[in-house]
């Protein structure tokens, strides 16, 4: 925080309960630093990203954190193959997103769709589903142990606060979580938003100078 000049710190502390408060706070900071050496990124990982073992549509074993999201820009959503509510529209949207991003998917952007019904969505069923939507490499469909997928669903906030609604899979959360794991940037878009808007949200995750040049502002029309 080079921006945080001594002047700022001083001007602010002058309004605080003065030196005693600041010193106590610093002592507190030292104590908590000793208690945990985890970085913000590691804290987020610990809190939200259980490294459960899942299985892809190609029947490969993958770990959620290590293999699917670590160091990547990702989209995450939940669905099930036989869902005839919001899923077809959302999956078709994601297919459009993949086509638009072309070869970036699988290179720096990765798409993950997790089943809500692991018992019926076997790797083979997921493969058929992926083929139906012409999914290309870089878009992974995932199944696994029901407990693991449930843990993942809850950890990533694909939940409804009303327990009866939360249990009803036909009312499952239709949002797509979008993130840049190393930069700790996370947001979410409705899965039924316009595909162009989902693409826009994904573009914000790319903080490279060339991407930012294009990012400046929106809605120019």
């Amino acid at each position: 925080m080079n921006e945080t000049s001594r002047r700022n710190l001083l001007s602010f502390s002058g309004l605080a309960p003065l030196a005693g408060g600041l010193l106590a706070a610093r002592a507190g900071a030292a104590a908590t630093e000793a208690a945990t050496t985890l970085s913000a990124r590691e804290r987020i990982r610990e809190r939200y990203f259980p490294d459960v073992i899942l299985r892809t549509q190609n029947n490969e074993k993958v770990r959620f954190y290590e293999d699917l999201i670590k160091d990547k820009i990702v989209t995450l959503n939940f669905f099930y193959a036989q869902c005839d509510g919001v899923c077809p529209g959302i999956t078709a949207n994601l297919a459009k997103v993949q086509r638009a991003l072309a070869n970036r998917v699988g290179r720096d952007i990765f798409m993950c769709s997790f089943t809500l019904k692991p018992a019926e969505d076997t790797p083979k069923a997921l493969r058929d589903y992926a083929n139906l939507y012409h999914a290309k490499p870089g878009w992974t469909f995932l199944t696994g142990r029901p407990d693991d997928l449930e843990l993942l669903r809850r950890s990533l906030g694909f939940t409804d606060p009303v327990p009866a609604v939360d249990k009803d899979k036909s009312q499952h959360i239709g949002n797509i979580k979008i993130g840049n794991e190393p930069l700790m940037l996370w947001t979410a878009c409705p899965g039924m938003a316009h595909a162009d808007w989902i693409l826009k949200a994904i573009s914000w995750m790319d903080r490279s100078p060339s991407a930012l040049e294009k990012a400046c502002c929106d809605g120019k029309s």
């Binding site: 509510g85 919001v86 694909f158 409804d160 009312q171 499952h172 959360i173 239709g174 949002n175 878009c189 409705p190 899965g191 039924m192 938003a193 316009h194 162009d196 808007w197 826009k200 929106d218 809605g219 029309s221």
Partner: peptide
């Protein structure tokens, strides 16, 4: 709708007047 907040069934989009 399925956890997606909406107004008249549509979602925020900067380009959508």
């Amino acid at each position: 709708l399925n956890g997606q907040w909406s107004i008249n069934g549509q979602f925020m989009d900067c380009n959508d007047i």
